[in-house]
Amino acid sequence: MTDARTEILARVREALAGSTVELPETSAPRDLAPVATPEVVELFAERVADYRAVVERCGTEELEERIAAALPAGEVVVPPGLSIGVAGAIVDNGALTAAELDQIAAVVTEARVGIAETGTIVLDHTPDQGRRAISLVPDTHICIIREDQLVADVPDAIALLDPARPQTWISGPSATSDIELDRVEGVHGPRTLHVLITPPRKVTS
């Protein structure tokens, strides 16, 4: 008896035998526009807020204060590479279990890319964002994203992202429409998403 792999590949070959295989072109229908114009920043803020996430724009110097104000009662976890200090936070060392994370009220992370058209934040879980579990189990997610990380649309983001990294694309708080197609925020993921948009990082030349 042939093994499943051999047989499936043989069936595929047979199924396509005799078909004239002209592979269609699949280029994206538009030019990529990865530059964050003021319109892109504005649209991003508006579209994230459409999902009933909290969106604030603030200067880098106000960030600590805004985070403190946004934090709920209880413990907060931060990834090891977070570029900003969060007073009293537990720094994830990779050893916290899911059950332990479930006792933590909030998480503060940075992000890789933000997509204006869809109001999406993409995490690729580098040390400024931490492993996937810490931004999943706590009920409040405070996410810092810089204006220079914002792009116009999905293909622009795809072009910037590294597929080798695990990614989490987040568009608003967790939600479901499973009951009468009525959208309800808050199921298993963080029920509160708080996004802080900060100015571009200063380039020192």
């Binding site: 579209r47 459409d50 999902y51 990779g94 997509i115 058209e117 869809t118 109001g119 999406t120 879980h125 492993r131 996937r132 579990a133 999905v154 597929p163 080798a164 990294r165 695990p166 990614q167 989490t168 694309w169 987040i170 568009s171 608003g172 708080p173 967790s174 939600a175 429409s177 993921g189």
Partner: peptide
Amino acid sequence: STGERMNPYTSTWSGVTPGDG
């Protein structure tokens, strides 16, 4: 599908990431 600009969560993973998942 859901009539949204984007669904709340999309996960991508490429095999095993040490220390994550």
